[in-house]
Design a protein around this nucleic acid. Structure first.
Length: 508
RNA sequence: GGCCCCGUAGCUCAGUUGGCAGAGCACCUGACUUUUAAUCAGAGUGUCGUAGGUUCGAGUCCUACCGGGGUCACCA
């Protein structure tokens, strides 16, 4: 239930006064001939053509009032639309005493949406403005937005005085955050550009964009706990997908050479600066390449997107210079772990021996993990934080990679790589396992290894095996966390800053 | 889930040893026909996150809870 604050009560009084004047506070019909940016550009063009006496330009513009300076019988307001700001110049002589009164009385004020018609001009101070002949209220604002005063300096930089920075309120009321913080709007515009560039790249490479089920009877393709839900009519237990992998590879069986999907994944895990329960994933699968072919595509795609969006392959992330120019270093997981922890896990080929080796270097790892998981621990703790520049870490332990093809002549490793930048995992890829007999054995192996963990930790997907038995061409597959990639290119510290509506606990 | 930090006006914040609840901006009243962080003259508008406790007296000290941030754990 809304409890109006004192300021909101003031605004409700103004609402009553405006309605007493017969004004429609929320009209359905609007006119607009120019955005703020178009109106400015039109006047600048007219000035360029004839500086002394520019052609008279008539405009009707719309926007939210962001600043109002009522100076007796004249008033200045800045309206803002998505494209910028524009000053409106009201004179009582121009709009008439009756129409001027609501402005003078501040019945129409900051935060309201207005439409204004007039001719373009420059004020004495030099600011391009609309000399308003008539105006109309488009939407009355009942609740004040946080106050952030702005000034544009001589170089065109926007300087803000005061700020709206309460993190919780910014996430819970993203609309207010966006309305007030221009740089936040820019982040999400850039996010859109990044995803568009990704699509353009993949489309041009001959990939087909597809959509696969989010509600799945059996989840799989990644290491994560799922969300569960229920279909009432069918009396069916369902999972929200944790990856697209198994459905996309079925499409290679179906005859497509290359497919990709960009969409939402759901993982029932902790929340952190790089984890949100739902997040955007991009996965692609391409026939007739292996994981090294995938590396080349990933390098080229990253370079293409960075060039499209930032105009450069060099970025600065949180004060750190990062160069995305391909090719990137390719280091085996074994070598990387030797380099950063001093342990060569191939000298400890049982989980018991490796556990002792970890304890010997002072690691407080808990007992009972599988050999592969201990190696994953070594990667996460000693290697990952050190990988600042783009790096491929390749050849992973078999028991944590059930969908990757074994490295030829090596019983311990599979052809898998993970891609890291700025100490964060960006992506994960395999030479895809397409031997249905081996795949079935892996499913059973997983079941045995992790049987005592959460129920159904590794469900065996019979339909996926059926598809594999028809035959899938040798393929390379890739998945990446789009949000983390957006963080990188927009220089945002937290995944919450690249999600419009990050997950929050319910409001008290 | 463990540990640490934070929660005071619409926004950003201060608040001493426990002693009348504060500032800037916003809002409100008034002046002003080219301002632009407008200016000038007035006025403080509050469930100090919530509930208990200690005390003559709590924004301040104690306990629990709620919410947020950080970090560790979890994330085959």
């Amino acid at each position: 239930m809304w409890q109006p604050t004192r300021v909101e009560q003031d605004r409700l009084k103004k609402v009553a006064e405006l309605e007493a004047l017969g004004m429609d506070l929320y009209p359905a019909r609007v006119q607009r001939t120019h955005t703020t940016a178009e109106a400015l550009a039109a006047y600048q063009a007219a000035e360029a053509a004839n500086a002394e006496n520019p052609e008279e330009i008539t405009v009707t513009v719309c926007g939210r009032i962001r600043r109002a300076n009522i100076k007796g019988k004249v008033a200045f307001m800045h309206i803002e639309d998505e494209h910028g700001r524009l000053q409106l110049f009201f004179r009582i002589n121009d709009v008439g005493a009756e129409a001027y009164e609501p402005i003078k009385q501040k019945l129409i004020e900051v935060d309201d949406f207005v439409q204004a018609s007039g001719t373009m001009m420059r004020t004495k101070a030099g600011e391009i403005s609309v000399r308003v002949q008539s105006y109309q209220l488009l939407a009355k604002s009942l609740s004040p937005l946080p106050v952030v005063k702005q000034r544009v300096d001589d170089d065109g930089n926007v300087i803000e005085y005061g700020e709206f920075s309460d993190v919780e309120m910014r996430y819970r009321q993203r609309y207010a955050d966006l309305a007030v913080n221009r740089d936040v709007r820019e982040v999400f515009k850039k996010r859109s550009k990044i995803i568009r560039a990704m699509r353009n790249f993949l489309d041009d490479e001959g990939f087909l964009e597809v959509e696969t089920p989010i509600l799945q009877p059996i989840y799989g393709g990644a290491a994560a706990r799922p969300f569960t839900t229920f279909h009432n009519e069918l009396q069916q237990e369902l999972y929200l997908r944790i990856s697209f992998e198994l459905y996309l590879k079925r499409l290679l069986v179906g005859g497509y050479d290359a497919v990709y999907e960009i969409g939402r994944d759901f993982r029932n895990e902790g929340v952190s600066y790089k984890h949100n329960p739902e997040f955007t994933m991009m996965e692609f699968y391409k026939a007739y390449i292996d994981y090294k072919g995938v590396m080349e595509i990933v390098e080229q795609m990253t370079a293409f997107i960075a060039q499209e969006v930032n105009g450069s392959l060099k970025i600065n992330y949180q004060g750190e210079d990062i160069d995305l120019t391909p090719p990137w270093p390719r280091i085996t997981l074994r070598d990387a772990i030797i380099q950063y922890s001093g342990i060569d896990y191939m000298e400890y080929r049982t989980s018991e021996d490796l556990f002792e080796a970890l304890r010997d270097i002072g690691d407080e790892i808990e007992p009972g993990l599988t050999w592969g998981r201990m190696i994953d621990h070594l990667l996460g703790k000693y290697v990952e934080p050190q990988l600042r520049q783009p790096t491929f870490i390749m050849d992973y332990p078999r028991d944590i990679s059930p969908f990757a093809k074994q490295v030829t002549g090596d019983d311990f490793h599979v052809e898998r790589f993970e891609w890291f930048i700025a100490g964060m995992e960006m992506g994960n890829a395999f030479t895809e396992l397409n031997d249905p007999r081996d795949q079935e054995a892996r499913f059973l192996e997983m079941k045995k290894l992790y049987a005592d963990e959460d129920d159904e930790a590794t469900p065996l997907d019979e339909d996926y095996l059926r598809a594999m038995r028809y035959g899938m061409p040798p393929s390379g597959g890739f998945g990446m966390g789009v949000d983390r990639f957006v963080m990188l290119l927009t220089n945002q510290r937290s995944i919450r800053d690249v999600l419009l509506y990050p997950h929050m606990r319910p409001e008290g």
